[in-house]
């Protein structure tokens, strides 16, 4: 357990937190590193299964091609669309400026 838990580094934790836009306290990094490592070690149990002859699958059901016809259906009322918006102007969502 101890040895496998070291597979994820503190750098990985900081990188994942940054990708997920999560703020984590510097003091918590080592705790999360240990906890994440433990979770990954648990999942590694799956490696024990012999999957040499099993094709990789993204889905468990043997079905494919759930398709719809190209038909326009009513959209939402803009008031409902904007109901959750922290800020709006007219019918636009407003967000902090994202460029320059």
């Amino acid at each position: 357990m101890e040895e496998k838990a070291r597979k994820i580094s503190e750098e990985d934790i900081r990188h994942v937190a940054q990708l997920a836009r999560l703020h984590i306290e510097p003091g918590d990094v080592s705790t999360f590193t240990r906890q994440m490592g433990e979770i990954l070690s648990y999942v590694e149990k799956l490696d024990e299964a012999d999957t040499r002859d099993v094709p990789a699958a993204a889905h468990v059901l043997p079905i494919c091609n759930a398709l719809r016809e190209d038909e326009v259906r009513p959209s939402l009322d803009p008031e409902d669309v904007l109901k959750n918006a922290p800020k709006r102007d007219g019918q636009d969502f407003l967000v902090p400026r994202v460029i320059g």
Partner: peptide, 29 residues
């Protein structure tokens, strides 16, 4: 099923699927 027509007033061709609301399912055209 939202329309793809160009030039509509802002945010009038949107629904829970294209807004990314939780619990919705995309279905391919």
């Amino acid at each position: 099923g939202c329309s793809t027509a160009f030039g509509a007033p802002p945010n009038t061709h949107v629904c829970p699927v294209c807004l990314g609301m939780p619990g919705v399912l995309p279905v391919l055209n």
